[in-house]
Design a protein around this nucleic acid. Structure first.
Lengths: 243, 243
DNA sequence: GAGTGGTCTAGACCACGAG
DNA sequence: TCGTGGTCTAGACCACTCA
């Protein structure tokens, strides 16, 4: 009982992996493909949406559907690594930062465990690879732990993070909650992805030894270009409950 | 530039959160809602798909769309916890296990770092809450680390895991790769979810002190009912690269 | 302006669930 | 059998990209 879109997606996938369509190449237009498979455009688009979700195909509005270069995926490393350590592993990634000051409100108060209107600093980080954005991070820290405004502005993410780490106490715990969802229209526009492409949403909360939340972050990773990787080393004597 | 489905989804969401539609209640049929909002059925279904992705609405084929009971989400705990520890946190969860023996093939050989046709044992675990399935796990272990077949069969997951843990050396590292994708048709049927609902896919690889892979697992968590949570404790002197 | 994908329409037919 | 959701059709119109 395979639906039509799956049959078409399977056929295109094998044609791509067999080299019939090469990486970076543009596929025939959706209208042509629909005619070739004798289906309507919505059905063909559903098939392409499957391949897009697998990271095999990339849709670009107004230009066409393109075969993705294989495994140009970025990996988010969880477990205490900062974006700085993350980007260090992939030098090809550019990252832009925008700093804003704002009062705590809504669910941010619960995340950071601060009272309403408590002063916060937001870092809006967008990483790019080539011309298209790859991931989006909104990082919140209490104002007193954020670097003072630099009249020159911070040009690089690295610079901001170096100052941030200077200011704050060592982290004791990093907790990351991960789920899959669709992007908000705003996120889809910022990341230039289809709103039908699921994203990996990571909510990261870092606390110091006193239990104070020193950083909360909301990361949005498009599923077609990013994974998250969590590594846990079991120390001797630290065997978790396994029986 | 809010698309129609987002407007409708927003309206329904506020009606639900305001108590206009109560938890467990059935929404009007899609045809009725489409008429009320003066849109076509596909558009209304897109709006419902958004709410379904948020876990606000649950679709049941042949019966209707239902308002979900709030936050009946299960959490997958990453970082060295086994399913046993996971289920212990939520006693309401039933879990069924099916054991199969199979030779290593395809990407399983790479995951477990064994040669092709190397003997493996697969545990297919499906957790249920109430009558509907909640998550799916395929766990693979080398045959020599798997408990021998019990003529009585293992009735509970707990029993299987107790035997499994007896047999294997203590874990040294647990690595979990997480991404978001759409379920395969098979997964969608097993979990009784729509194939348009994204799932959280976790690939877990556990190695012992010698570097041998003692367990590989593929977990599928429907995004409307499950999160994954990773907690990392920074030991003193174990400050990760942060500068 | 030509060609592309993005969204939507107003139906059709099939598959599922319950009485 | 009936009402439900699941899938699909054959268009339409708008937004974006590029020459």
């Amino acid at each position: 009982m395979a639906s039509r879109r799956h049959v078409i997606a399977d056929d295109l996938r094998t044609q791509i992996s067999s080299g019939r369509f090469k990486a970076g190449e543009r596929l025939p237009s959706e209208a042509q493909l629909a005619a070739r498979y004798a289906v309507s455009t919505p059905t063909l688009r559903n098939a392409l949406a499957l391949l897009q979700g697998e990271g095999v195909v990339e849709k670009v509005h107004g230009r066409g559907n393109f075969v993705r270069h294989p495994i140009r995926r970025i990996t988010y490393f969880g477990g205490g690594h900062t974006p700085d350590a993350k980007t260090a592993t992939d030098a090809a990634l550019r990252m832009s930062v925008r700093t804003t000051h704002l009062p705590a409100r809504g669910d941010l108060t619960a995340l950071l465990r601060v009272s309403v209107s408590s002063p916060l600093t937001e870092f809006l980080c967008i990483s790019h690879a080539g011309k298209s954005p790859h991931s989006l991070a909104r990082i919140y820290v209490p104002r007193d732990l954020a670097p003072a405004d630099d009249p020159n502005g911070y040009t690089s993410c690295k610079e901001v993070w170096a100052r941030l780490v200077e200011l704050r106490p060592p982290l004791a715990e990093v907790q990351e909650r991960v789920n899959a969802r669709f992007p908000t229209p705003r996120e889809a526009a910022t990341l230039r992805i289809s709103s039908a492409l699921p994203v990996l949403a990571v909510t990261r909360v870092a606390t110091d030894a006193t239990g104070r939340v020193v950083e909360a972050a909301r990361l949005v990773l498009p599923s077609d270009r990013a994974d998250a990787l969590f590594t846990h080393h079991t120390m001797s004597g630290d065997r978790r409950t396994e029986g």
